[in-house]
Design a protein around this nucleic acid. Sequence first.
DNA 1: CCAAAAGTGTTATGGATACACCCATGA
DNA 2: TCATGGGTGTATCCATAACACTTTTGG
Lengths: 234, 234
Amino acid sequence: MENYYKAHTKFYLAVDCIIFGFDEDGLKLLVVKRDFEPGKGQWSLVGGFLSQGENLDEAAQRILHKLTGLENIYLEQLATYGEPARDSAARVVSIAYYALISTTKFKENKSNRNACWYPLNGLPNLIFDHNQMVAKAILRLRRKAASRPIGFELLPAQFTLPQMQALYESIYQQQIDKRNFRKKILSMNILEKLPEKDMTGSKRGAYKYKFNPSKYNELLNNGYHFEIINNGKQ
Amino acid sequence: MENYYKAHTKFYLAVDCIIFGFDEDGLKLLVVKRDFEPGKGQWSLVGGFLSQGENLDEAAQRILHKLTGLENIYLEQLATYGEPARDSAARVVSIAYYALISTTKFKENKSNRNACWYPLNGLPNLIFDHNQMVAKAILRLRRKAASRPIGFELLPAQFTLPQMQALYESIYQQQIDKRNFRKKILSMNILEKLPEKDMTGSKRGAYKYKFNPSKYNELLNNGYHFEIINNGKQ
DNA sequence: CCAAAAGTGTTATGGATACACCCATGA
DNA sequence: TCATGGGTGTATCCATAACACTTTTGG
């Protein structure tokens, strides 16, 4: 029965979360100071060990919550890293997850002194293979962002078009023409214009919008394909 | 030091390989009959356990080789599956890999009676969550195929354009216009026309081509983006 | 009244699609 | 000679890209 299994080795399994944050200053990464050896005091992704009885997604949520207080974040699995020597202290295989949120969702404060946002350009050296994970996550985020409107998971469900455009510009690190961007996004008919304006970004104010999830899902189910940035080049 | 680690659970780690095969009959999947419990006698993906000292890619290669004799297959990591009850006998987390090869690379024979090709439409029920893995791999293959010429890993390094087109048609399950397909592929300048013809498919014969890897890599390095099928819909 | 960001249309270009006929050959 | 699959060119269309001025309002 189980005998066949018993002949094999078991491994530590970790989950590491690449949390991208977005605000007026662009894209940032959530990093923590490790408080245990090896690498105590070094920067690291938000991570922890898989426990008995939980699945991988649950582990990611739990670990993220425990270290940052963040809850109900849409995490997506990125890849699994298993170089024998990737962790200097023991053989640990790590499953990486990533998410994109508004930086406002996690406020650096005293009780969370060990976690903070770091601008994407100019990341510090992270422990183990974490920089490699981040690089891969950025590529994935770009691919993803090109084909569907991320942002659902973003901002307090309301946002202005200039904000949304700034998000895409920081993901792609390139300027986008205002008129073309608006044309494209609005032509999808998945946004609803709200009567209020957001006055924080300018004197004139910009109209707020919100996603219309039902229209969005309807399109998705009908096989519609979103292409916000034409990533011919990359 | 390692004390922090020791407090945590260890897990069995498996690798499962989704091997797509292509020939004149379309796409197929390589499946094996399990020869141990649980699920002895049922169909399963090519899989096995991770060993100490090898990384994930190496494990996938080793397991694939052991069960099928296949060597030097370009395997790509797909995703990791970790539902606590996915394996009925023990908690096993499985890292799925996939590849696309020519069915001629693996010939079913007496010594390999337990592994065989199965047409993609009309797969049997596979053990555990293996059907789910296959479904995900198909989607990934389509995305991949849309953005770069797969086929490098395909056929004895020589192929005809009708063959290549048939490959794309079976991946996408849709007809492609002959002229448009040729135009697109040839305009990339990554194929070399060979003087010989392949006479197996027709009386007239079709010219053989081969990839020119150096031109291909040159383009890749220059940031060129391949788009063979415009997957506006899916 | 001025600075700063929001908002708005049109044109040109290029890639994607649609489409039909001749060619070579083995049987 | 004919049936079968291989090979070729062009016209239309639509999505993308480029581009500049007016509007609003807080200071």
